[in-house]
């Protein structure tokens, strides 16, 4: 399974554009997800200084990171994601597409399991017992 991040900064989130640019700058250096986790881990601090600190913490080339931020290098990719989201009719976040099938909002884990299992069935891939249990509403188990 692969999870792909698509930027969709909502218009009314004033601090979102810079955060998305910073994550794109981290992505340049292959550290998107660790950066993503840092931003989500400290929602209160969403300014340039915090992002530069995260870049230092993650061992990034801070000069390159800052340059990407200052010149808005990731903006084209972000704008493309936003345009794609709007083209798909997405209006809010988070919005998930499981193999192209839309799941809106923060859904319970079981709904993801159901959607994933349906895809596995369609692709004739055996479904692990734990995944069947998860789709039935059970909590995900270790090793499942």
């Amino acid at each position: 399974m692969r999870i792909a991040w698509k930027h969709f900064p909502l218009d009314f989130h004033a601090k979102a554009p810079l955060a998305h640019l910073a994550s794109a700058a981290a992505n340049e250096q292959g550290k998107f997800w660790p950066f993503h986790d840092k931003v989500f881990g400290a929602q209160a601090k969403m300014d340039k200084d915090a992002y530069l600190q995260y870049a230092r913490d993650l061992g990034l080339d801070v000069k390159r990171f800052e340059d990407a931020l200052n010149t808005g290098r990731g903006k084209a990719a972000i704008d493309a994601d936003v345009a794609e989201a709007k083209g798909l009719g997405v209006t809010g976040t988070p919005a998930f597409f499981v193999n192209g099938k839309f799941l809106s909002g923060a859904k319970p884990f079981s709904e993801f399991a159901t959607a994933i299992n349906a895809e596995l069935t369609r692709l004739k891939i055996p479904i692990p017992a734990a995944a069947q249990q998860a789709a039935a509403g059970g909590a995900p188990t270790a090793g499942g």
Binding site: W5, P9, H13, A16, Q43, E119, L123
Partner: peptide, 23 residues
């Protein structure tokens, strides 16, 4: 999803695209 930051193998049979924002 080709150029999107992603986690998991490129050839995975299940691909979840997450449109999300930081905030």
């Amino acid at each position: 999803t080709d150029s999107a930051p992603s986690e998991g193998p490129k050839t995975a049979p299940i691909v979840i695209a997450e449109f999300s924002d930081f905030q």
